[in-house]
Design a protein around this nucleic acid. Sequence first.
DNA 1: GTCTATATGGCGATAGAC
DNA 2: GTCTATCGCCATATAGAC
Lengths: 203, 203
Amino acid sequence: MDKTLNSSTEEKIYEAARRVFVSKGMEGARMQEIADEAGMNKALLHYYYRSKENLFKAVFKDIFTKFFRKIGTALLSEATVKEKLMLFIDEYVDLIQSNPYVPQFIINEINRDPLMLKSLMFESGIEPQKILFMFDKQANGETLKKIDPRHLVVSIIGMLVFPIVARPILQMIYFNDDQDVYNQFLTERKEIVKNMVLKIIEA
Amino acid sequence: MDKTLNSSTEEKIYEAARRVFVSKGMEGARMQEIADEAGMNKALLHYYYRSKENLFKAVFKDIFTKFFRKIGTALLSEATVKEKLMLFIDEYVDLIQSNPYVPQFIINEINRDPLMLKSLMFESGIEPQKILFMFDKQANGETLKKIDPRHLVVSIIGMLVFPIVARPILQMIYFNDDQDVYNQFLTERKEIVKNMVLKIIEA
DNA sequence: GTCTATATGGCGATAGAC
DNA sequence: GTCTATCGCCATATAGAC
C-alpha cells in the first residue's frame, strides 16, 4: 500500500518536496517540479507552506533530526566498545543505503547556510555531546588505548559515506560504470569496514 | 607578488570564476559576483567566455584534471605498497588542506551532471585504470593479502575527505565551534590516519 | 576592450475565479 | 481547497556607445 495514495494534500506536498529537495538541493529544486511530483498545482504549495524557504526548512529539520537520532542509538546502547562500533556500522550502512542522497544533502545545505546548525540542534533537542562523551568515557577505560574516539568515529563515517556520495566517479573508474557490480561492492563493504575497524582498535 | 595583479583580463576572470564556482557551485554562483571578484563589469565575462556554462566548464575541467593527476603521482611512484600509501596520504592531505572546497565541489557537480564524467575523462587524458591496476598488481604480491585495494583506497580517501567536507557539523558537535581546535584536529589527523592504515594492512 | 543600458526568460509568489 | 492567470524580481545574455 502506497502511503501517499490516501494521504492528505499537505502530506503529498511534503513527501514530494522531500524527494525533490534531497536529490536537487534547496537551490536546485523548483517549486514547479515539486508540484508535478505531488500531482497538483504550484499555487497549492504556497497555500500550505507559504514559501519555498518554509517548505525546505520543514523538510530539512525532519531529515536532519531523524538522521542524527539514528546515529545516537547504537552508540548509546549497553555494550562493549567493540560491540557498539559493530552495531553502529550495521545500522549506519543500512541507513545510508536506504537514503543514499541524504548525507550529501545535509552536508551541502549546512555548508550553504551554517547558521542553520545552531538553531537546528537546539530545536531538534539533539545533544551530541552526550553521545560523544559517553562514547569517550567507555572508550578510555576499555580497549581503545591510544585512539582518540573522535578520530575513530570520523574515520568510520568517512569510510561509509564516501563510496555513496562519490558513487558516479568510483563506479566509473573502478567498474567501467557497471551499476550491478558497484552495488555488490557496496554490499560487501559492510563486512570489510568492520574488519578494518577491528584491526584498528585491536592492534 | 600577487599573480593576479599583472595578469590579463581573461586570467582575472578565470581566477575569480574559479574561486566563486568552487565555493558556491555552478547553480549557486552568480555572474555578477564573479565580475565583482574580478573587479570588472559583468558584460566582460560574456565577451571572453560567451556563457556561464562555458566559463564553468573551463574551470571545472582544469580542477578535475589537476586533482586526479595529483592523486596518481603517489600511487605510480616506485616504492613498496606501504611507502606508496604513506606518500599518498601525505600528498592527499596537503592537497585538500590547501583546496578544502574542491572535493565537495567535484562530487556535487558530477552528481548534478554525471554525463560530464565520460567526456571529461576522455578529454583530460586521465587513465585511472592504469593507476588502479598498477596498484592492484603490486598489492597482490606484497603485504596486502586479504585486502581489496579498491576498498582500501576508498577508505583512505573517505577518512581524509570527510572531516573536511563535514567540517561545520563536526566542529560544532566536537569542539563547540572552536575553529582553532578543529584546525589542530585536522593537523594531527594526518599521522592518525597513517597509523590506522598501517594497522589495517599489517594485521 | 570595456562600459551602461536593456532585452529575455525563468522562478517564486500572489490575485482572483470557482 | 484547488485551479488559471499574472505579477515582480532576479539572473543570464545582448546591444550599442565610447
